[in-house]
Design a protein around this nucleic acid. Structure first.
Length: 270
DNA sequence: TCTCCTTTGAAGCAA
DNA sequence: TTGCTTCAAAGGAGA
């Protein structure tokens, strides 16, 4: 049942029509600084990715899929070939990108009604780690148990946006180049590199992100971003107010000074 | 062990 | 409709 849903989602993505101007789905949102350079029709060019997806060769016939289902549990390797994007299909991307390297696109457990419980990295325990240890129910009240059960419910993560996909892709490269390990510093570099990308290059990631949202919607139809609201510990409001008076990042700074995204790094943040 | 940092984008929410 | 907030990833740093 779940696998059927997954396969349907995959098939949907494999055959999902390229954006066509009057699309029924939201188009990838190019960054503000790119809006001026949007083509008249407002839709990014069909990326090579689409050609890859629409290629008949990597697309398995549904019968094949079902056959695999019968004989053994689905494995990543069954499908990764179909979604592995070579540097050729991703233009300038330096190395192979597999959709299945991204958790939200991996098959997994935690889907109601799925008996086989194929691990799905998009679904994680609230702690972010696998919790296998049972707890002593006899010591808990019913209310506590219920609350605990609720708290232990696996969390379905948000689908990654274009920039997050880009970060996942490029992080290792930046780490190697800059011998940095601190994510905050790496992300700053990645943010600047993101702005330096051409519109076409960014469009690939917007397209990937759009597909990811589509797949996420197929896999978790009832899911909403509000489900995860408040699950992370929030920063204190004072912290936020403090950061508002001290723009420490281009985004905050741009927001504060009302700058266009194209302005990139403003004076105070440089 | 937990939270912050840091980025952009999507989505939620209050006014 | 607008503007603010939260959460996605990542891993080191500090409390």
């Amino acid at each position: 049942m779940y696998k059927d849903t997954v396969y349907s989602a995959f098939n949907l993505l494999m055959h999902y029509p390229a954006p066509s101007g009057a699309g029924q789905h939201p188009q990838p949102q190019p960054p503000l600084h790119n809006k001026a350079s949007q083509p008249a029709h407002g839709v990014p060019q069909l990326s090579p990715l689409y050609e890859h997806f629409s290629s008949p060769h990597p697309t398995p016939a549904p019968a094949d899929i079902n056959q695999k289902q019968v004989h053994r549990p689905l494995q990543t390797s069954d499908l990764s070939g179909f979604y592995s994007l070579t540097s050729g299909s991703m233009g300038q991307l330096p190395h192979t990108v597999s959709w299945f390297t991204h958790p939200s696109l991996m098959l997994g457990s935690g889907v109601p009604g799925h008996p086989a419980a194929i691990p799905h990295p998009a679904i994680v325990p609230p702690s972010g780690k696998q919790e296998l240890q049972p707890y002593d129910r006899s010591l808990k009240t019913q209310a506590e148990s219920k609350a605990e059960k609720e708290a232990k419910k696996p969390t379905i993560k948000k689908p990654l946006n274009a920039f997050m996909l880009y970060m996942k892709e490029m992080r290792a490269k930046v780490i190697a180049e800059c011998t940095l390990k601190e994510s905050a510093a790496i992300n700053q570099i990645l943010g600047r590199r993101w702005h330096a990308l051409s519109r076409e290059e960014q469009a690939k990631y917007y397209e990937l992100a759009r597909k990811e949202r589509q797949l996420h919607m197929q896999l978790y139809p009832g899911w909403s971003a509000r489900d995860n609201y408040g699950k992370k510990k929030r920063r204190s409001r004072e912290k936020h107010q403090e950061s508002n008076t001290d723009p420490g990042s281009p985004k905050k700074c741009r927001a504060r000074f009302g700058l266009n995204q194209q302005t990139d790094w403003c004076g105070p943040c440089r």
